[in-house]
Design a protein around this nucleic acid. Structure first.
Lengths: 132, 132
DNA sequence: TTATCTGCAAACATTTTGCAGCGAG
DNA sequence: CTCGCTGCAAAATGTTTGCAGATAA
């Protein structure tokens, strides 16, 4: 992925404006609504390359769908995601890294990688739920 | 899921004998090899109900495939899985729980759930890799 | 110019579902 | 005897790919 095309800028710009994790299909729809015409396959291909270079983070949902988001920090971090509105907070995971390292050592595993994400209800959505 | 059928016992028994995480398709193939005839759809349906009752744990891989395993502990725990041979160790995650609770509190989230799994190379596979 | 990118449609992989018939209780 | 379970094949889902034409550099 080298060439800067209309389609790639469109996807990139959209991600820059979007706070929360979005699926490829959602992003495709958002582009379409905004008058941009980008093929779904191109959206997938672009997201794939952005993920490879670490420009966007990928979150795999329980139903198998992948969500994408341009994160503030490039370094390793985790996410606290609102199940209801998708609002996302980037959080550090020093405690998780230490835990992973200790488990690896205790059980003789090497090259141990980890996945850790948090899903809950943000303050705003909790308040709204309380009203209804 | 109430009736005890030949098919359900077969899947249940197979899981009882299997140490590592296996996909529905792998389990289906293993049954077939063992002379048992169980439809793939039935394997999926059975695994789904076993997962609902907490009798088996489900692990979703990066490629979207789901792996199933009958775990020793029923209570909440995490897994340290060998990427190479699939060997799995059940590990506690007190550190992770505390981390999740702290992040939730700091950012005003409630009802926070977490996913956390560890993937690495077990001692045996590391030794084997070293030889070749 | 020309190698890369795009769009479409077809291919893929995994999982789910509709339905007629089987079989456990 | 009955209602839930099974197997098959078809559908659904999310994603990837082949290919001919478009296009950035």
């Amino acid at each position: 992925m080298l060439r800067m095309t209309r389609q790639r800028s469109a996807v990139s710009d959209l991600l820059a404006q979007t706070q929360d994790f979005r699926s490829a299909q959602q992003l495709h729809e958002m582009l379409r609504e905004g008058g941009q015409t980008v093929g779904l396959a191109t959206v997938y291909r672009t997201l794939q390359s952005l993920a490879e270079t670490g420009e966007v983070d990928v979150l795999r949902m329980d139903d198998g769908e992948s969500l994408y988001r341009r994160c503030e920090r490039q370094e390793h971090h985790h996410h606290l995601v609102c199940r209801s509105c998708g609002r996302t907070v980037e959080v550090g995971g020093e405690a998780v890294e230490r835990w992973a390292a200790r488990m690896a050592r205790e059980h003789g595993f090497v090259a141990v990688d980890h996945t850790a994400e948090l899903f809950g209800t943000c303050a705003a959505c909790a308040a709204q739920e309380y009203q209804s």
